[in-house]
């Protein structure tokens, strides 16, 4: 393989361009591929839980039905609405970043962060209610008066699935706070907004997982 041309040195005018990329476009595309690959790993991580859930629900359909009656359907629906709206505000934040509107970017990021906080707040209320009633995972299950065995398995899945999802919401909040700080500092522009874009993708995936968790856990008929 022959032929060559001299290395083009990057000017100092692009402070966020890493040395091994030619331009911000290439860098953004690479990071987007990286982000989607990461999202796929998240899908398969939760996917394992969904497969386990599916098999166990098939084996213990009565117990899963009885277990879900202990969940508060209206709180679950409320949280679904909260997360969907937060996805909307996140999409708006990405749009504001792309159009270079810093004020609206800050506004929508703050709104997304607030909705995420509401989601975790509602989750806290739900969890403490379950703790109080002894509806705990596996061997810590203390609830008396079930008509079928296996309700503990339902709550194992409830806590593992919503717990892992909650950790992802928390991680999302950390990422959005970081974006907020950078947005206030004025890092982002119409040419450089990849971190907002990527965090947005992550946040929508967290929303998407909840879209499945809601009917699977709260709406068993």
């Amino acid at each position: 393989m022959s032929g060559s041309h001299t290395v083009v040195e990057h000017g100092a005018q692009e402070p966020f361009l890493q040395h091994h990329f030619h331009d911000l476009g290439q860098q953004a595309e690479a990071s987007k591929i990286g982000m989607w690959l990461f999202l796929v790993t998240e899908i398969l991580l939760f996917g394992g839980l969904f497969v386990g859930y599916g098999i166990m629900r098939m084996l213990h359909s009565q117990a899963f039905h009885e277990g879900h009656l202990h969940l508060d359907r209206s709180l679950g629906a409320l949280n679904t609405v909260v997360l969907l709206v937060s996805s909307f505000t996140m999409a708006m934040a990405v749009h504001s970043a792309r159009t270079g509107n810093r004020q609206r970017l800050i506004l929508f990021l703050a709104a997304t962060l607030a909705f995420a906080g509401v989601f975790l707040g509602v989750k806290y209320v739900e969890y403490s209610h379950k703790f109080h009633d002894g509806l705990l995972p596996g061997r810590f299950y203390r609830h008396a008066g079930d008509s079928v065995p296996g309700v503990a398995v339902f709550f194992s899945f409830y806590f593992v699935m919503t717990g892992l999802h909650g950790l992802h919401v928390l991680a999302g909040m950390v990422a959005i706070s970081w974006l907020l700080r950078r947005a206030v500092r004025g890092d982002f522009s119409a040419t450089y907004y990849a971190p907002v874009d990527l965090t947005g993708l992550y946040w929508h995936l967290v929303d998407m997982i909840w879209i499945y968790l809601f009917p699977l856990l709260y709406l068993i008929s």
Partner: peptide, 11 residues
Amino acid sequence: AKASLVALYFM
């Protein structure tokens, strides 16, 4: 259907 909407438009 909901997940598809999120993927197609928001993402």
